[in-house]
């Protein structure tokens, strides 16, 4: 074999090596799916699917008659997701508009890395601040014995989601061609009219995608809700009720279970439900992003 063709063989081998690393990502994703499904689905030998998805009470350790309904947990997750996004999306999008359209170049250069840094703050630290600062504050305002409830958790989860929403929306808005703005301003539109009439419509699907990614983070957030949401398994009726979303249920109970028993399997089933939820959310945001690229 001469030297030249040896180089070619080597090149092909190296290409294959890099491809193998790419394939590993697929293996991890499928691995997550299979392990969660394999362990989680075993729970349904003993728990009826109907009880699991439609039962309101989750009490695996109840003596004699454990309850396996995840409805109150899912409701907790939805409560927190909805309230926190109601806070984070308007604030995040408005901040993104400020950074991209109004702020001076200097302020923009300071704000962007600052927000990147904030995104790196661990959620356990936010949870701690929730315990120390936000919960007592909420308790005082609403005159509650303690502030560990859905609202407090939502405020903190909103702060978690804020950097994601701001930075993606800001990218989308900054990517809008300058000619759009110039055209609008040249027609005598004010800056607000330009933002409302040109910028926001052009950025809308990107902002939706940013919000969906934010939703994905919010639904999967564990530490903040574990620390400040109050952890009550009761079915929540008000935003000032303590709640226990899917994530914190897993985190709390995984330490108490016997490995391999029904409760253990049920927690994996719960994790599987969470995985499917975030998978669907990410897929949807993906569709919005590609749709936007298609429109351009």
């Amino acid at each position: 074999m001469n030297k030249r063709s040896w180089e070619g063989v080597k090149d092909r081998f190296i290409a294959f090596f890099f491809a193998a690393n790419g394939i590993l990502t697929i293996i991890i994703l499928i691995g997550i799916f299979i392990f969660l499904a394999y362990i989680g689905l075993q729970a349904f030998h003993e728990i009826s699917i109907r009880e699991f998805f439609f039962g309101k009470e989750w009490n695996p350790t109840a003596y004699g008659e454990p309850k396996w309904g995840i409805l109150s947990l899912v409701t907790g997750t939805i409560y927190i997701a909805v309230i926190s996004l109601l806070i984070a999306i308007p604030l995040g999008v408005a901040s993104a508009i400020y950074i991209a359209e109004l702020a001076s170049p200097f302020i923009r250069e300071v704000l962007k890395p600052a927000i990147e840094m904030i995104a790196a703050i661990p959620s356990v630290v936010l949870g701690l601040i929730g315990l120390l600062i936000v919960a007592p504050f909420v308790a005082e305002i609403f005159n509650l014995p303690n502030g560990l409830n859905a609202l407090t958790a939502s405020i903190l989860v909103a702060i978690m989601a804020l950097p994601t929403i701001i930075s993606i929306s800001e990218d989308v808005i900054s990517a809008i061609p300058e000619s759009y703005r110039e055209a609008s301003l040249a027609l005598g539109a004010t800056r607000w009219q330009t933002i409302k009439g040109v910028i926001l419509p052009a950025a809308s699907s990107g902002i939706v995608a940013a919000s969906m990614l934010g939703l994905g983070r919010v639904v999967g957030e564990t530490m903040v809700v574990l620390m400040v949401a109050g952890n009550s398994r009761a079915f929540p009726t008000s935003i000032l009720d303590p709640v226990r979303p899917i994530t914190s249920t897993i985190a709390i109970e995984i330490k108490e279970v016997v490995q391999g028993d029904l409760h253990f399997q049920a927690l994996f089933a719960l994790g599987f439900v969470l995985f499917l939820m975030t998978f669907a959310i990410n897929l949807a945001s993906d569709i919005f992003l590609t749709w936007r690229q298609g429109v351009r």
Binding site: T25, I28, L29, G31, I32, F35, L36, L213, G216, V219, G220, E221, T222, T247, I250, A251, I254, L267, F268, G271, L274, F275, T278, F279, I281, N282, L283
Partner: peptide
């Protein structure tokens, strides 16, 4: 999708 999987699910995995 991996980037969107919640960290607690990685924990279970």
């Amino acid at each position: 999708n991996l980037a969107g999987v919640p960290s607690i699910v990685y924990g279970l995995f």
